[in-house]
């Protein structure tokens, strides 16, 4: 049997982190649940943000969870892909904007 670091079945066991640190675990899940409730942003908007961040964090559990969450909320595949592009744009933008730092350094050092 091939072994990998990630097992899709582990997502169901997420709640078990509370077993070894009850107070902190419960506080985390309470906070987590509250974050995703309807608020100034809709639960649907939050789900799409979570999907984009799941990709930039490259968390396979989160990608599975928020893809399914999106389907349950009626989010279309086009909306999901656009959300991921937002994450990708920020990721690549964050890389490229450091180019200014490189340019500053070159301009300072180079004669």
């Amino acid at each position: 049997m091939s072994k990998t670091y990630y097992d899709p079945a582990d997502l169901r066991k997420f709640g078990k982190i509370t077993d070894w640190s009850k107070d902190l675990g419960e506080k985390f899940f309470e906070y987590y649940g509250k974050v995703f409730e309807e608020g100034a942003l809709t639960a649907r908007e939050k789900s799409l943000i979570a999907l984009a961040v799941a990709h930039t964090e490259q968390c396979p559990y989160c990608i599975d969870a928020y893809t399914k969450d999106g389907l349950q909320r009626g989010v279309t595949k086009e909306e999901m892909m656009e959300a991921i592009h937002v994450g990708a744009a920020i990721k690549s933008g964050a890389t490229l904007v450091h180019g200014v730092q490189m340019m500053n350094k070159v301009n300072k050092l180079d004669m």
Binding site: T42, L71, Q72, R73, G74
Partner: peptide, 19 residues
């Protein structure tokens, strides 16, 4: 509304609003 695949329906009120 029935989900169009192997997933459960989301919150009924949220779906109704979107529809």
């Amino acid at each position: 509304y029935n989900p169009s695949g192997a997933f459960l329906p989301g919150d009924q009120m949220g779906l109704e609003n979107k529809f």
